[in-house]
């Protein structure tokens, strides 16, 4: 495995399966009364969050702590970044503190890639701009595998705001590596121009894709990143691309519904669909801690 985890494309099929298998064993630790392992004692993990996040930051923090690493949380608000410190100077400060791994969330695509050139430790991308979020893709693949078994040949449909979604890109790359067939469904305005180069199919018609899907993953409409009118109204978007009760009924009986959160209930997903037993949304959060433990263990557990 690479020293850094910046893109889901960095992972070979063997790497990805090793992470998923490791997570499968680590999931059992979460069921014990003592949920702690001594493996990363003495290692330091820095959570460097330039963008707001609840579940990802907490999830990385819990994962590092369960492996006995020391965790330093850094958020841009209230730090020297608000005084105008550059990413590089922040990185050098962390370097001087002896960080073995830096988990970074940044609003600019490519920030983790730059950071990796400046620090000696491992860099883990926890979401950069509209680019990638590889641990989210891993936890999604892990959640799918726990529900459905092997992902080879499985039909995964990802619906919604692909243009602003780092989750979609990482998922497409990872699922292609794992042998699943991915179809993206979105209004043409919410697809990136480069979509033709992605290893997946594209459709504009959700109703025709749903009956053939094993997994339907709904993406959040990222209003905070939208600086133009990408669709006429929320109501129209919801009618054409939202997963409501009627559409849910068109899915095969054993198909599952996923959402990376946070959800806009009633917009891209109806509340009763989100809360159904076939939805993995709550599991995804628990699996997030497990998969991040696996990633931190594999990056930091051996010689570095």
């Amino acid at each position: 495995m690479n020293r850094h985890l910046i893109s889901a494309a960095d992972l070979t099929k063997d790497d990805a399966l090793l992470i998923l298998d490791t997570a499968e064993e680590l999931a059992r630790v979460s069921e014990r009364s003592i949920k702690k392992l001594p493996t990363l004692r003495g290692r330091t993990v820095v959570n460097l969050f330039f963008e707001d996040s609840t579940r990802t930051r907490i999830s990385f923090e819990a994962a590092a702590k369960r492996l006995s690493a020391d965790v330093i949380n850094f958020s841009a608000k209230g730090s020297s970044v608000s005084k105008g410190e550059s990413l590089k100077d922040t990185a050098l400060t962390l370097e001087a503190m002896g960080a073995d791994a830096v988990v970074i969330r940044h609003g600019a695509s490519g920030a983790p890639h730059r950071l990796a050139n400046w620090v000696r430790g491992s860099v883990v991308n926890a979401g950069d701009g509209t680019h990638e979020h590889p641990t989210q893709a891993l936890l999604d693949a892990f959640s799918m595998r726990r529900r459905l078994g092997n992902l080879e040949g499985r039909k995964v449909t990802i619906v919604g705001d692909v243009l602003h979604s780092r989750v979609a890109r990482s998922n497409v790359l990872l699922l292609a590596t794992l042998g699943a067939d991915v179809t993206l469904v979105a209004p043409p305005t919410l697809l990136p121009v480069s979509i033709g180069t992605w290893p997946c199919e594209v459709s504009y018609d959700l109703d025709s894709v749903l009956p053939k899907s094993d997994v339907v993953m709904m993406l959040r409409v990222q209003k905070e990143r939208m600086n133009a009118a990408y669709f006429p109204s929320e109501r129209e978007y919801s009618r054409r691309y939202g997963l409501d009760r009627d559409r849910f009924a068109k899915m095969p009986d054993d198909a599952i519904v996923m959402h990376p959160g946070p959800m806009n209930r009633g917009m891209e997903i109806a509340a009763e669909v989100a809360d159904s037993p076939r939805s993995t949304i709550v599991e995804q959060v628990a699996n997030g801690v497990t998969i991040r433990m696996a990633v931190l263990y594999l990056l930091l557990g051996g010689e570095i």
Binding site: D21, E25, L37, P38, T39, Y297, G301, G302, E303
Partner: peptide, 17 residues
């Protein structure tokens, strides 16, 4: 996860508990 020689080799796959 409890070995004392973990840092002498790359991280190894886990067995089943």
């Amino acid at each position: 996860m409890y070995r004392d020689d973990l840092r002498l080799r790359p991280a190894r796959p886990l067995g089943r508990t």
